[in-house]
Design a protein around this nucleic acid. Structure first.
Lengths: 220, 220
DNA sequence: TAAATTCTGTTGAAAATCCAACAAAACGGA
DNA sequence: TCCGTTTTGTTGGATTTTCAACAGAATTTA
């Protein structure tokens, strides 16, 4: 647990909670880290999501595959981030959505009810965590809005540029590494991989961007 | 206020609150209904969303228009529903998103801070409302997931059928009226209106659906 | 190190969407 | 009722995406 302490204190669920209390809370929540191999399905479509996940290392993707085999990546969660909150809180079952480790990952699963309801130990941090969880959910909502803004563009080129621009804005730099390989980026943008590759080549030829694998530079 | 009492008690923000207390709460929140004409922009892109909106009559759409003039409808909120929660709670500014009355509508705006923070009147319902707001936000999240599932389909036909199937599932019937006209449906599905119209005609010719204006029947 | 696998870019033909323009139908207001 | 506006459906050509197949590069495994 100590190993991941620095990640946990960055998790927005624990905002406003002193370091010395974090340990108590984790104990109260009976939370222990688990390791998952790459491609392991943490929450499976069709089954209730019983826990809120916190990524300690690696990364987790929300993925859905439709009837025709088209794969979409809805969200990517990196260390310090949470996943599955909405389903865990509402009790809704994700009919077509799974949460999958996209790398070897350490994950901590928290029982939503333990967070929402004051415990017998009378540990007084539930109020703060409920507030934090709400803020987190609001932000998750806004991130989905941003994803929709990107994928609502009508062409592959516009989608890609919208994605790269937003990423540049978030990192505060025109030069960065994206968290997706080509296939994953295509699944996030909801376009064909081959078409995406050729569009990247064109943009590079036009001097709009520079790129190598996951590394991108936007020229202005 | 009495006029909209029946709508308000159905709003999930007030779940678990007795009718006789609802009046007190609304007074405590200093909430009064306002009327908006069709097409009036209630929350404008680029400006902070200071309130949570509750639709009392009519309907409100979350709309974004991109650089090229493509319009997307992200959500449609009907009486009893809420809008703007995520932005109001997180404090994030919707860069490209506006909330617009799609019909003449009565709306009640609530100050988010008044909900989140216990008031001096010591009215004891904030706890319940915070809990309700969290559940509501979780559900809003899931609705965005569902919209993404629909729009992530690669063809106009699949998007339309996914939308109609989900709508049938939600209403519990294969026969229903959708809340969009053709242009709005196209903007929701992120396709061309003309292409959508012709696809509807084809599906009708094939006997897959029956339709007239906003009325649809899915044949099985 | 060699072999196997995965990832990436390229290409061309088939399919679908987008766009613009138009006409008919429906609707709303004077 | 009449007129102007909005909504809907239709069509064809330009544009774009999709699909399938392949080759080279990079990475992983034995």
């Amino acid at each position: 647990m100590i190993k991941f302490f620095d990640v946990l204190r960055k998790c927005s669920l624990f905002d406003g909670i002193e370091d010395e209390n974090l340990d108590k809370i984790l104990h109260c929540l009976r939370a222990t880290p688990d390791f998952y191999d790459k491609k392991f399905t943490i929450f499976t479509e069709g089954k209730p999501v019983k826990y809120i996940g916190i990524v300690l290392s690696g990364s987790v993707q929300a993925v859905q595959v439709d009837y025709y085999g088209n794969r979409s990546i809805l969200t990517e969660t990196t260390p310090g981030g949470m996943f599955g909150q909405a389903f865990a809180c509402s009790g809704a079952i994700p009919d077509t959505l799974s949460y999958i480790a996209s790398e070897p990952s350490d994950i901590m699963l928290l029982d939503c009810n333990h967070i929402l309801h004051t415990c017998s130990n009378n540990c007084g941090f539930h109020q703060q965590m409920i507030y934090n969880l709400m803020k987190n959910m609001a932000n998750a909502n806004i991130e989905l809005h941003q994803r929709i803004e990107i994928t609502s563009k009508r062409s592959t080129r516009e989608k890609l540029m919208a994605y790269l621009s937003l990423y540049a804005q978030k990192t505060g730099s025109n030069e960065f590494d994206i968290p997706f390989d080509r296939q994953e980026l295509a699944d996030y943008l909801e376009v064909e991989r081959s078409g995406l590759s050729s569009e990247i080549s064109k943009l590079r030829a036009e001097g709009v961007i520079e790129s190598n694998k996951r590394h991108f530079v936007i020229n202005m």
